[in-house]
Design a protein around this nucleic acid. Structure first.
Lengths: 359, 359
DNA sequence: TTAGATTGAGTTAACGTTAACGCAAAGGGC
DNA sequence: GCCCTTTGCGTTAACGTTAACTCAATCTAA
């Protein structure tokens, strides 16, 4: 506040036209060295900062990106957001944070707002494989990139850039690990099937069941909402079944950790009584006392790659190329599924295995 | 992209002047009902969205706030940020996310950027009690609010709005709890003394020692950096002492959880061998398997109150009043300090207490 | 010497809004 | 019927940049 110093103020001080000031401050030709220096020193004196709004208006770009996520409360996003923010900053871009809370109409309003504000591009991470908001943006050739999700539907959608982890492969690895640990009946805590990540992880899970000759009827799926509480509730429901699964795969760690609590609250142990595997490898999964086995993905890198790709598009590099990047998932074995030792499956305490439903 | 529909485009379509369009779309008087309706329907047809940049330029406000935090990786901030984002959105404001990574010069550059971008106000959460950046902003009467921190120094600083928790009281409660549990030698994992929250929490801790007649020499302080890893390392150093403390107070949960891991990695148990208390009550502290006793504070509310107060100032309400709000901390007893049962201190397993250094 | 290029500026318009002002036509009160 | 107000517009300028265009003075090359 208190009004800014403008180029015109400096012009007045220096007794020149505002264009001359502009030339001085932006290293443009057609100005003598002496006036240039004089102007620059005046600008420094009054601590001149250009008005980015005015610049944006005339240049038609804001050096700002929108980041659309569901909720920052899900620990997956801060880790992703760090990669995004770091990279954006290093490239001179700012981030406007938008949390949709899983509400597609709120997403829609956010998009309108972001476009009104002239953001140069949008990073989408939230759910919804068939997102009309995205469709519209693509039709308008608005620069965007999807992270950790894909959209289906229009053939046009095939040209959308994205950065994901090989979700199907990750789902496969998770369930394969459980199968190798001897589990034959597995509960999956899924998220909304609107999320491509969920669909693909489930797909991978099923593929593992088939590949290992198991009956898919023993792959039990309950739907959560990606948040911890829903993982808790789903796990309770699994445990209350007449023939409960001996292992649970949470399609994200946050729900898996909810399940972890549910198991303990039920007086059971992880992994002695029930095995647990997650997806994402959020920081807290590694905690002693939890040690969730999970599928790791490079969240920071994903964010960083997304920003680079998006900004490349915005600044006109590789305009034509469609960038669809799938990173490798990685099985991270910790404690929550037990482990093999000398060919024998053991509970982590080293004692004999004690999984009720392990047949 | 693909260029926006502007007010002038609509004017052309409707065969009127752009001012008339403006009047129609903004419910201004001096326009007939019929043209108004005609224009509105055209605007709807072409999906007109006003250019916020242009609006901001002429109105001198952007309906945007800067949110300056250290790093979104610290789980305290997402919870706070949620309150901030929710509230800002509901009041029609956007948030630009700025992570300083504890670097005051990066903070400085961010502030310049935010001001260049004409944000209407800034929310500060990062460290540094004597922050020259803040001093400058206050001198310029730039709207700002501090969350979870205060600044000292200038007498001018007394007029800065802030929302905090009663940190001294929280620190007192934490250490008092440990003392009541029988601990007489306590390690504190502190953060940078540049953080007012840290200073005040330590102050509270010392007050408890004094009030309970303990020797302050038994209040051991090691400095961390607010992140988990540093909590881990500090705890290792405590445990390696010739006469280690029997309890550790982490000035934030994130470091306390690092300490938790360090204790377990050292082959000791929490709380049987060593008690642990944190501060902030982040989501994961409540997890089964961790159950960190901690000082709770209303993070979401803090963010929400901050945004309300800041926007009140921005929009000219209560301009003169200084709003300095301190919320009540709350002791949240879980498992990590053990508990009293029938007047006898017991380890959570219910067996006899086994704290090595409890005298 | 002189046409042509170069230098060092200034003038003007544009970006898309908001808003002050102007002005003719219609309406209203006496 | 006259004056004054109101209505329904249009014109113009402003916000702070960027940038195209203009123009005189100086320099340069034949």
């Amino acid at each position: 506040m208190g009004r800014y110093t403008t180029i015109k103020d400096i012009a007045k001080l220096a007794g020149v036209s505002h264009t001359t000031v502009y030339r001085a401050l932006n290293d443009k030709p057609r100005i003598s060295q002496s006036t240039k220096e004089r102007i620059i020193s005046i600008a420094r004196e009054v601590n001149y900062q250009p008005n980015v709004l005015a610049q944006s208006l005339v240049l038609g770009r804001t050096k700002t990106l929108g980041l659309v996520i569901t909720t920052i409360i899900n620990p997956f996003y801060p880790e992703l957001a760090k990669g995004i923010e770091d990279t954006a900053r290093s490239l001179g871009y700012n981030i406007i944070l938008c949390c949709t809370d899983f509400d597609i109409s709120r997403e829609s309003r956010y998009i309108d707002m972001l476009r009104s504000r002239g953001v140069d591009g949008i990073i989408f991470t939230s759910a919804h494989t068939h997102d009309p908001n995205i469709t519209r943006l693509v039709k308008d050739h608005f620069p965007l990139i999807l992270v950790n999700r894909r959209v289906y539907g229009d053939p046009m959608m095939d040209s959308i850039d994205y950065v994901v982890v090989e979700n199907a492969k990750g789902g496969f690895l998770a369930v394969e690990h459980l199968i190798k640990m001897g589990h034959k009946r597995i509960g999956v805590i899924s998220g909304s099937p609107d999320s491509s990540a969920v669909v693909e992880r489930l797909e991978g899970a099923r593929k593992a069941f088939i590949e290992y000759g198991l009956n898919s009827a023993n792959l039990l799926v309950l739907e959560g909402d990606f948040l911890k509480r829903s993982g808790y509730e789903a796990a309770r429901r699994f445990l209350a079944m007449a023939d409960p699964p001996s292992a649970i795969f949470g399609v994200n760690d946050y729900m898996a950790l909810g399940a972890f609590e549910a198991v303990l609250d039920s007086g059971l142990r992880v992994p002695e009584d029930i095995a647990l595997i997650g997806f994402n490898n959020i920081t807290f999964s590694a905690m002693k006392g939890i040690e969730l086995t999970t599928i790791g993905q490079k969240k920071y890198e994903m964010g960083s790659i997304a920003v680079h790709t998006l900004i490349d598009k915005i600044e006109g590099r590789d305009r034509e190329k469609v960038k669809q990047i799938a990173l490798e998932p990685e099985l991270i074995v910790r404690r929550s599924c037990g482990y093999h030792y000398k060919g024998v499956y053991r509970s982590p305490s080293g004692g004999p295995l004690n999984i009720r439903n392990l047949r």
